[in-house]
Amino acid sequence: MSDDTLNKALFEFLCRMGDNTLVLGHRVSEWCGHAPVLEEDIALANMSLDLIGQTQLWLGLAGELEGAGRSADDLAYLRDAFDFRNLLLVELPNGDFGKTLMRQFLFDGFQSLILTELTRSSNERVKEIALKVKKEVTYHLERSSDLVVRLGDGNEESHRRMQQALNELWPYVGEMFIDEPEDKLLSEAAIAPLPSSLKARWETLMRPYFAQAKLNVPDEGYAHKGGKHGTHSEHLGFILAEMQFLQRAYPGSTW
């Protein structure tokens, strides 16, 4: 395998990491000023801030590695939807606060596992970022799991909403664990794990929380996919139209 092929695979992978955090950060930030309690306004702004910070690291490295002179901002603001590599899960509309929390929880579990692996990456730069953001993500998982448990095991209404959120989001979980051709290359080079290898660990990690939350985990079922190679839901286009507006309307400006 040529260095070039591996580089391209790594670029794809870094875009997946960065696009996940970017798009999820965007969705989470939509709650600013609209959360159910003031403490959650603060927590969600903080969460979104972490995710945007992580985006700068992942996409920054992606741009550097690509060597075409694109910055993290160029990648975030000047690619169209088919070049985005995020999971469908993170681009779904927020729904109620329970659905937002459940999505965060499902993602945080995956993210914390993949980051743990990346802290052992053979690529120094990837490893460096993983080490830097691991703590943030551990905290995110602590927070989201705690709230999912408390609401799942709260009253009838909160339980109903959390169960519904889980049912609705479940078909978007499977995509996290699909191996793409790039993943195989990166796993052979010990740069990143095979997503499929995280599946069993994810279940082991998440099941106790679901049990504590008294939530029924749906059967495996159908998994929506396509995000990781650029076939997205209709939602992403609108996210980008909003996010990229200024850069598109006033190209070449300094902000």
């Binding site: 970017l22 965007h26 930030s29 939509e30 600013c32 000023g33 306004d41 603060i42 702004a45 903080n46 979104s48 801030l49 945007i52 910070g53 985006t55 700068q56 996409l59 993290a72 901002d73 975030a76 603001y77 996210i239 909003e242 996010m243 507006f245 200024l246 850069q247 400006s253 902000w255």
Partner: peptide
């Protein structure tokens, strides 16, 4: 304007401010 901030850095600064 958070979702429309023109750069990642501006977005982060604005998020931190609103927080």
């Amino acid at each position: 304007w958070i979702t429309r901030a023109p750069t990642l850095e501006r977005k982060a600064i604005l998020l931190a401010k609103v927080q």
